[in-house]
Simulated assay, not measured.
Amino acid sequence: MDNYSQLLAFLWTTEHGNFSAASRAHGLTPSAMSKLISRLEDRLQVRLFQRGTRSLTLTEEGAAYLVSARAVFNAMAEADSLAEAFPTRVSGSLRLHTMTSFAKHQIIPWLPEFLAAYPGLTIDVQVGAQFSDQFDQGLDVAIHSGVLPDSTRIARKIGQSRWIICASPAYLARHGTPEQPLQLLDHTCFSFGFNSVWNNWDFLLNGKRITVPVVPKATFAQGDLLRDLALDGAGIVRLAEFHIGQDIREGRLVPLLDAFSADSFEPIYMIYSNRKHLSPRIRVFRDFLEQKLAQSPWNTSGP
């Protein structure tokens, strides 16, 4: 940085003709300006100016250096001009990893609107039930819920969703509606096929928190498959409201055992690698997503 300061001092002195005028124009003292030029000459091992009583003139070496100095200054100015445009330039590819159910029910509905707003941006959406740190492989953003593993990554809460036990009206008409948590043991239930808190069917019974040891008839890696089974009337499932909230509001699924609810709310996080100098493509996606989630009836907390 000191080298660049010396170069600027040389250009300013050349422009104004002496140290006093150059220093006044750029907020330095004549002594400070003179020292910068002297350091530059010492570093280059040449004299750049002939010092006169009232003015300075370039030496032959100074005239040659002026050509290069102006080229360096113009290149720096061009680079700064490009960088200043970065905050408003949204282009390139955004790589996103999230849960299949979240992508399908919370991102896909507004994705065309987002892409139309930012035509220079493309999005690569990768899905998986659990968070996997792939930022070193080029991932930009991850969206996942629940307890995240300890990490140096930045996790920004963007919402909160309730977990709901539910079934279709057709299933309940055939098999009856459970009135007590333990009655779930007599019903056909489905769950996730991996170790997760999502498989804990928790309730408040007589003032105490209990977990009913539901033994699922089948397990699946994706929540959408559990939802499909419930909609088909095959059994009872436990899924996030961001996933099945529309089904409940439209009567396709019926919440069960709400009176025993253990307030199973789960935070949803947007995860990225660094808070500082956030890429414009990440920032606009984050802002757009938070705006949409704030309007969602299932989101009980907002960002």
Rank of each mutant, 00 (worst) to 15 (best):
H175G: 09
M1H: 12
S264F: 14
L28I: 07
Q50M: 10
G146A: 11
R238D: 05
I165Y: 10
A83D: 07
L139C: 09
A64F: 01
H243K: 01
K208P: 14
W12V: 05
D232S: 08
I158M: 10
Q183F: 02
V254R: 07
I236H: 00
A142G: 14
A32C: 15
A9T: 01
F86C: 10
L40G: 06
L48V: 11
W201Y: 09
L257P: 06
T100L: 03
G27S: 12
L205R: 00
A21G: 10
P297T: 04
S191C: 13
I165G: 01
H26M: 04
M99F: 02
H277Y: 13
I164M: 03
Q160A: 06
S273F: 08
D124Y: 07
N200Y: 10
I154C: 08
G159M: 11
Y65W: 01
V214N: 07
T219S: 03
I158F: 08
I271K: 07
E60M: 10
T59D: 03
R89W: 09
D202P: 04
I158A: 14
G62F: 03
R153K: 09
V67Y: 06
A167Y: 01
A117P: 07
I236G: 05
F73Q: 15
V212N: 03
A129Y: 01
E15A: 12
Y269Q: 12
L111R: 04
L182Q: 05
F220R: 03
S168R: 02
Q6W: 13
T59S: 04
F86G: 12
S151C: 11
E61G: 03
D124L: 05
S191L: 12
A167P: 02
N274S: 11
H26K: 13
R51Y: 15
F203K: 01
